[in-house]
Each structure stands twice: as structure tokens, then as C-alpha cells.
Design a protein around this nucleic acid. Structure first.
Length: 99
DNA sequence: AAAGTGACTAGAC
DNA sequence: CGTCTAGCCACTT
């Protein structure tokens, strides 16, 4: 992991608009990382200025230890939560022409 | 160097 | 729903 990748991840995450979420996998792929685990590592390292709550698992489920707060934040942004899980429609946030 | 761990994912059962 | 495997990558013992 070099700082460039980390910066890219932070940018991408910052580019996710409210009401939308992305997955660890998509984020990693978009940042050119080979493993989604790195995303989790980056967030664990420094999530102070990041919209970490907009990052969910591939299933649409929030982070295991912060599930409560994350779910609450997401709901506050108007994201549809059904049974502890984000709607898969908004989970996959695509960059169509923004890339 | 080797093994354990984790904000991950996908497939098998 | 759940557990297990197997990849995955950086970090810590």
C-alpha cells in the first residue's frame, strides 16, 4: 500500500454522494487495489474525514462492529434499509461518465 | 521467517 | 439465515 492508493480511495469515497453507498470491493477495484481488505484497513487507520458509513459489504450489510451507528447514519441520508441491510440497488454505485 | 488476524468476497453446504 | 474454505493483502507477534 502506497499513499497514492490511499488518497485515491479517500477521493473516491468523498465522491460518493449522500443517499448512495458503495462496497469495499467496488471501492478497491476503482482505486486499483487488488484486495477489498485494504479498504477496511484504510478506514480503520483513519476514517475521521471519510464517509465510512457509505461503505458496506458486498451483501449490503454494514460493518460488523459499527452496524448500529452506520445503519442509523445511512437511514438519515434517506437510504432504504430493510432488515439490517442496504438495498442492493443503491449498494452498487457506478461511475458511468464521472470517470 | 512463519503464523495469526481483520471495517472483505464468493462459493459450497 | 448459518458455518467453512479458499483467496486476498497489510500488519503484528
Amino acid at each position: 500500500m502506497n499513499d497514492e492508493q490511499v488518497e485515491r480511495v479517500r477521493e473516491l469515497l468523498a465522491a460518493v454522494p449522500p443517499g448512495r453507498v458503495t462496497t469495499y470491493g467496488d471501492l478497491a477495484a476503482a482505486a486499483g487495489l487488488n484486495s477489498p481488505r485494504i479498504i477496511g484497513r484504510i478506514l480503520a487507520e483513519d476514517s475521521a474525514d471519510l464517509a465510512w458509513h457509505r461503505v458496506v459489504h458486498a451483501d449490503g450489510k454494514p460493518a460488523p462492529h459499527k452496524v448500529d451507528e452506520q445503519l442509523q447514519r445511512l437511514r438519515a441520508e434517506g437510504i432504504q434499509i430493510r432488515n439490517e441491510r442496504v438495498d442492493i440497488d443503491v449498494t452498487r454505485w457506478r461511475w458511468d461518465d464521472a470517470m
